[in-house]
């Protein structure tokens, strides 16, 4: 579980996060949604320690990241898996080397053991026979899956995903969403996904946090999102024609 308490983040004079308080629950896919510029990615980067908030505290279980020294933060980061928006695979390494990278850095396993684990996670994300290819030689969807494999190879307790299905076709996007949720449940990890894709919300939103202009506008689950009268939620959710029509049908059916 990750607890966020009154987190504020500024860039110069501009306050991007204006006191966010929420909890991301273990064994669930927790989604942070909101329009562009609402502070989603900044909150994510505060959670993983790439940005330091000016105020507030972030707890991993009972331990505040602000109280940890460099070594403790490094230990914590070994328990974190991260899926970046563009995949962030290392161009100079093959797929196999990319996925093996966290194991080489943080474990003392023999190469054969590492290879076994790499093949296991690559099969888990339905990728076979790509071990010796370079990231530039595979599709965007495959790169995302390799990135998921790299994120989970060291059995993390926390998985963070930044816009995991951006730039993907709807079918591949759904596949990636479902994969993230399955992995979350299988390994009982705390997963936080930043997205503005309502399809993702409908697929995997076990807990949804809506940000608006750096504040927490609403939180609930994917079922509650269609029932709430919260104006910020309805403005966000029904901004697309598809969801407007769904809303009309829902209202007609009472």
């Amino acid at each position: 579980m990750i607890k966020v308490e009154n987190v504020k983040k500024r860039f110069g004079e501009e306050e991007i996060l204006k006191g966010i308080t929420t909890t991301f629950e273990k064994g669930k896919t927790n989604l942070i949604i909101g329009q562009s510029g609402s502070g989603k990615s900044v909150l994510l980067k505060c959670l993983i320690g790439l940005f330091k908030p000016e105020e507030g505290r972030i707890y991993y279980e009972e331990n505040a990241i602000q109280d940890m020294d460099d070594d403790q933060q490094r230990d914590l980061r070994e328990e974190i898996g991260m899926l970046f928006q563009g995949g962030a695979l290392f161009d100079s390494m093959t797929i196999e080397e990319n996925v093996m990278f966290p194991l080489r850095m943080f474990t003392k396993q023999k190469k054969s053991e590492m290879l076994g684990r790499v093949n296991e996670v690559l099969s888990r994300v339905d990728l076979n026979n790509v071990n010796k290819k370079y990231p530039a030689e595979i599709s965007g969807g495959m790169q995302k899956r390799v990135s998921i494999a790299r994120a989970i190879v060291n059995k993390p307790k926390y998985l963070f995903c930044d816009e995991p299905n951006s730039g993907l076709d709807p079918k591949t996007a759904t596949l990636i969403d479902n994969l993230i949720q399955e992995i979350t449940h299988e390994n009982d990890i705390t997963t936080v996904v930043v997205t503005h894709d309502m399809n993702s919300v409908m697929e995997i939103g076990e807990k949804v946090v809506l940000l608006k202009n750096g504040t927490l506008a609403w939180q609930g689950d994917k079922n509650e999102i269609f029932k709430t009268d919260n104006e910020d939620v309805t403005n966000f959710v029904y901004s697309s024609d598809l969801f407007k029509k769904i809303r009309e049908v829902q209202l007609k059916e009472g």
Binding site: R77, E78, M82, F90, M105, F160
Partner: peptide, 10 residues
């Protein structure tokens, strides 16, 4: 974001 990836890994 490859440098961010390294940093996130600790």
């Amino acid at each position: 974001e490859q440098i961010d990836a390294l940093e996130v890994m600790g």
